[in-house]
Amino acid sequence: MKKVMSNKLMIALYILPALLLIGVLIYVPLVLTGYYGLMKWDGIGDMTFIGLENYMEAIKDEDFWSSASHSFLLAVFSTLSLAIYLIISLILASKIKGSDILRKIYLIPMLLSSVAIAQLWIKVYNPINGMLNSLLMTLGVDNPPAWLAEPDIVLYAIFIPILWQYAGFYILIYYAALKNIPETLIEAARIDGATAWQIAYKIKLPLIMGVVKVTIVLAIVGSLKYFDLIFVMTGGGPNGASEVMASYMYKLAFASYDFGYGSAIGFLLLVITLIVTVIIQKLTESKDELQY
């Protein structure tokens, strides 16, 4: 093994397949997208070079910024919800009865495909015979809202299934991290008279801080580029009320036949996500990582 690792040629050979794939499938299209953004192109006919016009237009485009604000709102909500997942995992990881079953139950939404989840929630939100409104009406609410049709509500109505969809994933990550903490530390703390709250807050949390940071980045980046449920459940409607950056990009490129402008939006989406990622990493940087 040592011999292999010291041979530079071997290293190169082993990382090559992955590097090639990622290059061809991700980096080349990325550069192309940025390039198409410089063109006036309907996606079918000839391209004309128009310089940065698309990008300038995007910066002035109110619809783009409103979709961006929706994406950021989702990022805020998914980051806040991490706290709930953390509490759930802390409970699951402390030896309570049935934690095994509960963990699996939480994980199930992650096993469903996005489209299935969307169909499920469309049924739940159906204004006339949906589960939610039927429940509200039996509880005496006379005129429950049409969740996916009202511009003021629709965004939050979609956030719920999005957060629900990923809950299991984050709970699983936290759970695994918490299980990794050596039992001896907890025992020592308990002998010293620490309460359950103190153990969780002063010992467990600092020890899994590295994982928490990773999940924050995942949640924010995932939210900024989010697409699937929104596309299936409302298509960004009514009239852009639930549009996010990725669905706006799709709409421009494939529905409005404005491939150049759509590409420019796609590239801006990448730039925004990159900037945010760097900022988060800077903010959560700490010099001394705790060790077990």
């Binding site: 204004p127 049409a146 969740w147 996916l148 049709a149 409302t234 009514p238």
Partner: peptide
């Protein structure tokens, strides 16, 4: 129908 903006043609 109520909530028509959130309902597909198929529904």
């Amino acid at each position: 129908i109520k909530g028509t903006n959130g309902m597909t043609n198929l529904e």
